[in-house]
Amino acid sequence: MLEVNGLRVSYGGIQAVRGISFHVDEGEMVALIGANGAGKSSTLRALARLVNPVGGNVRYRGKELLSLPAHQLVAEGIALVPEGRGIFPRMTTSENLRMGAFSRNDKQAVERDLEHVFSLFPRLAERAQQVAGTLSGGEQQMLAIGRALMSQPKLMLLDEPSMGLAPIMVQKIFEVIRTVASQGMTILLIEQNAKLALEVSQRGYVMESGTISLTEESAKLLADPKVRAAYLGE
């Protein structure tokens, strides 16, 4: 579904991503783990065209992705849940969710999907009319995921959905991610919390200073002593 080849991202002189290649197949959940500053977010931001990669190519369902402007990706079925959530702080919860469906024009289906998101996250239904900037961090993360779902994506790119959240909230959010994945969504998941990411995903890539150093089935990565030592704190 997604095939990345030799992707490079630079900020001024700094090379954040140094020619990485990986792929995500239809219906798969793939984890991308690595230390702070390894270049995980930069990779996702390049895929979502929020930064212009300096090299490489990305094929997505037979199309060259890097030739599309950012605002056309959502119509191709790609949704990014950005690091730090990126909600619209002065819009209400429900306006934020409707922004997720901005590029759609099937009104009735949008209403149905709104109900679906509310059923996945009942907390959002209670807060529907609340201004999103006043939601708690966990609620904002739910909102960011719900908003991504509102675009009816085929591929979801999640950037650290567990960041800064209490364990109970992380659990709730990952429950939903599992549910969505089990319904056939293709997901590329970035996580600091490597254990969690490898537990829910089928395959994993380990990123180290801008390159991919290891790739394996998630279960094997979880058992790998080197990975355990470096990323699972053992």
């Binding site: 929020l50 402007p69 950012a70 002065r90 819009m91 901005f102």
Partner: peptide, 19 residues
Amino acid sequence: MAMRATAQNPQVASLMGVD
């Protein structure tokens, strides 16, 4: 709606399909 979204977060607005 696109204008308000862009004012609040242009990058994310473009992710939502706003030109």
